[in-house]
């Protein structure tokens, strides 16, 4: 009976992983296809990579996307950390309910709504105060910060509530004022959480198509907008090449992260042995 159940689980697991990864593998395979028609194999070639690198459009979009992603991640981490601190460590304050509602709403808000409302807002603002004069990088960045900060806040919130408050109390007990405690104790201990938040915000920004296409202006195409405008019309081998590069980058990043994690784990083990001796 038990054996049967675990074979069932095993096959579901295999099917699930195949379902998740086969499409990506196919994407990579076809990026090396000579043929212009994606699904028809025409021999091995790297010509689509060459074509991709020649395209100035792609480079511009990539640069813009990376710029937005970095600025967004930095600001979102700052604001999100503040919000997380306020929600977990400050007890009750006026407007806390609205605040926590506004923190969790962007996580589940359909992108089309967020995008549309931000665009309407920017237009209204322009009519009212003349800013932003034209939409582009600034408006996209603001829009991205708004939803990314919510994700960061959630990460920080969960880290903080998992962190024993006695460390902060101990610092106060030793004579540190609350603000000092935040810099000496809370923030150093939150650093891993903030790093995770930064990475998440960075990825969210790089990945966003819908919100950016609402609030973008002429000539401010981010990479997803560019990809979208191309694939809407059908399959494109150069997009396969681009996808392969992205997948490879992520894979390398994950490998490095895994390596660091294993190293830390080993160090921890060694430390524990040292403590026991």
């Amino acid at each position: 009976m038990k054996k049967q159940r675990s074979t069932f689980l095993f096959s579901v697991l295999c099917f699930g992983m195949a379902f998740l990864y086969i499409p990506m593998v196919m994407l990579v395979i076809y990026s090396f296809n000579y043929s212009k028609i994606v699904p028809v194999w025409g021999g091995f070639s790297t010509r689509w990579y060459a074509k991709l690198f020649e395209s100035e459009e792609v480079w511009n979009a990539l640069t813009l996307s990376l710029q937005i992603a970095v600025i967004n991640a930095t600001f979102a981490t700052l604001l999100g950390t503040m919000a997380g601190l306020a929600l977990v460590r400050f007890g009750r304050f006026r407007g806390r309910t609205i605040f926590s509602g506004m923190i969790s709403a962007p996580l589940v808000m359909p992108e089309v709504i967020t995008g549309l409302s931000l665009l309407m807002f920017f237009i209204a603002l322009q009519q009212l105060v003349g800013w932003p004069e034209k939409r582009g990088m600034t408006t996209i960045t603001i829009a991205h910060i708004t939803f990314s900060l919510a994700y960061v806040a959630v990460i920080i919130q969960s880290r903080l509530s998992g962190m024993s408050q006695s460390l902060e109390e101990a610092a106060q007990d030793l004579g540190a004022k609350p603000f000092r405690v935040m810099f000496d104790i809370t923030l150093p201990l939150l650093t891993p959480g903030m790093m995770a938040g930064w990475l998440l915000a960075f990825t969210l920004s790089l990945d966003d198509l819908v919100i950016a296409s609402f609030v973008k202006g002429p000539g401010s195409d981010t990479l997803p907008i560019l990809i979208y405008s191309r694939v809407r019309l059908g399959l494109r081998p150069d997009i396969n090449a681009l996808a392969t590069i992205i997948i490879a980058t992520v894979a390398v990043g994950v490998l490095i992260a895994g390596w660091i994690m294993i190293r830390q784990y080993k160090k921890q083990k060694a430390d524990q042995q040292m403590a026991a001796s």
Partner: peptide, 20 residues
């Protein structure tokens, strides 16, 4: 008087040593 100005110090149950 806030904790950081009291002439008392505390040894916490979990010790609350700063891990960093």
């Amino acid at each position: 008087v806030p904790p950081y100005e009291r002439p008392v110090n505390m040894m916490f149950q979990s010790y609350a040593l700063f891990p960093h």
